[in-house]
Design a protein around this nucleic acid. Structure first.
Lengths: 135, 135
DNA sequence: CCCTCTTTTAGAATTATTCTAATCTAGTTA
DNA sequence: TAACTAGATTAGAATAATTCTAAAAGAGGG
């Protein structure tokens, strides 16, 4: 993805383009590590931690990225959400795989039917362990 | 559910039966409010907050209850998991509906295929808003 | 190139959760 | 039933992720 395309992502969502926002968005797009705010700050130390938190909050509100709050480390992780996908979490290692091999339309239809709400998004995590390790 | 059945739930998972654990488990079984530790403590003030946190941790490890970490209030919520189900969250009110009208087997099969892991659990949240409120 | 409103920032403040280490008790054993 | 012991409970202190504050800087429209 070109730098210009990244600027366009911010503009499309009505966010002002700043060097900090571009750096954080680029970091999220180019890393598949599902980082925490602190991890981003480690790698982009010239950006203040407050700005990293502020920017992540804005990117989540714009639905450009999503939050993963369920790892057992007690920290909030973030994930660029270019393509809708779900997460497979290895609960032994906290490694996260992004997967797309599942059609969510039936789930969303069921949720609409059960609740009467207008469905705006979803978040799916499937947990697993290494098959070597009996369980 | 009888008190004896609740004792049996604890025993089945190798947990010692204590008055505190019975009270907290009963609270979770009989309330559909998806409470936080603090909410439980409000209603069971004779149990120390430390014990409430400890007990919830044990119940989660035993997979008797599950954690909901994704509400926008920044607090951890808990849910008795007698029947596997998924959550529909009204993002305007943080209300949570427990729903079962969806077969997760295809999702779990897809996850196994994508990851090679032995699947041990899942967590699905679908987000929605009141259809009255255009969006 | 201004001007205004938004963003960034360092550091303080907050607060949910975890830790500590002393006491108590469930459940087993004799 | 009494004694024992590993595990559970507790109050309060400690931790640490996140949010807040208010002052300085910058984006982008005109």
């Amino acid at each position: 993805m070109t730098p210009q395309a990244q600027r366009d992502i911010l503009k499309k969502h009505g966010l002002k383009v700043t060097a900090q926002r571009l750096a954080i968005l680029d970091y999220l797009i180019t890393h598949e590590t599902h980082p925490t705010a602190e991890m981003i700050h480690q790698d982009l130390p010239m950006i203040s931690l407050a700005t990293i938190y502020n920017t992540l909050e804005r990117l989540v509100a714009a639905e450009i990225i999503i939050v993963i709050d369920s790892l057992s480390d007690g920290k909030r992780h973030f994930d660029y959400y270019g393509q809708p996908h779900y997460h497979i979490v290895n609960t032994q290692t906290n490694a996260i795989i992004d997967a797309e091999n599942f059609d969510v339309a039936p789930l969303l239809a069921a949720a609409r039917q059960a609740s009467g709400l207008n469905i705006t998004g979803f978040h799916i995590e499937v947990y697993g362990v290494n098959p070597e390790d009996a369980r």
